[in-house]
Amino acid sequence: MDNRNMSDIIESYLKEILETTNKIEIRRSEMANLFNCVPSQINYVINTRFTVPKGYKVESKRGGGGYIRIFKINLLSSSDYLQNLTEIVESKLSESEAEAVLEQLHGNHLITDREFRLLVSLFDSKSLLPSENVSALRSQMMLSLLERLAYEELE
C-alpha cells in the first residue's frame, strides 16, 4: 500500500466514484466495513473533505435506514456560483476555509493561477496581523473579493 493515510484513501475512493456521477449515496457502517475503520473516520472525511467551499453538498440521515448523500455542485453560471459562495462565507473564515474557496474559484476558472497564488498568500495567517478578529477580517476580505468577481462578470 502507498504512503497515504486512511482519510486520503477514503476521499480518493469517493472522488473516483464522483468522477462518473454527480451524486452518491453511502452508508456509514458499510463504508467503515469496506475500509476496516471506525464509522467516525467516515464522518471525519465527509465533514472535512466534502464541503460546499470544496464543491460538494452533503445530506445525511441518521438511524436505521440512514444514509449519507454527496452531491457535486453543478455550476449554472459563475454569477450564481459566486452568490452561493457568498452565502456560505460566514462572519468568521479560517485560513483553510479561505483557501478552499480560492481553490474553487481557481478550479472554476474565475481566477488565474497567478491570482490564486497571490490571494492564498494574502489570506495566510502570516500576512494578517494577529488578533482575535483575524477570522472576521478574512471573511470580510473574501466577501469583498466575491462581490468584485461577480461585478466584473456583469461588465
Rank of each mutant, 00 (worst) to 15 (best):
N3D: 12
R4D: 05
M6E: 13
M6T: 07
M6Q: 10
M6S: 11
M6R: 06
M6H: 06
S7F: 12
I9P: 01
E11S: 11
E11M: 08
Y13D: 12
L14T: 07
L14V: 07
L18Q: 05
E19M: 06
T21N: 10
I24N: 03
I26Q: 06
R28H: 00
S29F: 05
S29Y: 12
E30D: 08
M31V: 02
A32S: 11
A32N: 09
F35Y: 14
F35T: 02
N36H: 14
N36R: 15
C37R: 11
P39D: 09
P39V: 04
Y44R: 15
V45F: 08
N47H: 07
T48N: 15
T48S: 14
R49I: 08
T51G: 00
V52M: 14
G55H: 13
Y56T: 10
K57C: 02
K57R: 08
V58E: 03
V58F: 04
E59P: 00
S60G: 06
R62H: 09
R62L: 10
G63H: 06
G64P: 10
Y67E: 07
I68R: 06
I68S: 11
I68T: 13
R69Q: 14
F71K: 03
K72I: 03
K72L: 12
I73S: 04
L76Y: 05
L76R: 12
D80L: 00
D80P: 00
L82N: 11
N84H: 07
T86S: 11
E87I: 10
I88R: 11
S91Q: 10
S96P: 00
E97D: 07
A98R: 01
E99H: 04
L102E: 03
E103K: 13
E103L: 12
E103Y: 05
Q104E: 12
L105R: 06
L105D: 05
H106Y: 13
H106L: 04
D113M: 02
R117Y: 15
L118K: 05
L122N: 04
F123T: 05
S125N: 15
K126V: 02
K126Q: 13
S127R: 09
S127A: 15
L128Q: 15
L128C: 08
L129W: 15
S131I: 06
N133S: 12
N133E: 12
V134F: 08
V134P: 01
V134H: 14
V134M: 09
S135T: 02
S135V: 00
S135P: 01
L137Y: 02
S139A: 14
M141F: 00
M141N: 07
S144P: 01
L145T: 06
L145Q: 07
L146R: 13
R148Y: 10
R148G: 11
A150W: 05
Y151E: 09
Y151G: 02
E152G: 00
E153Q: 11
E155L: 08
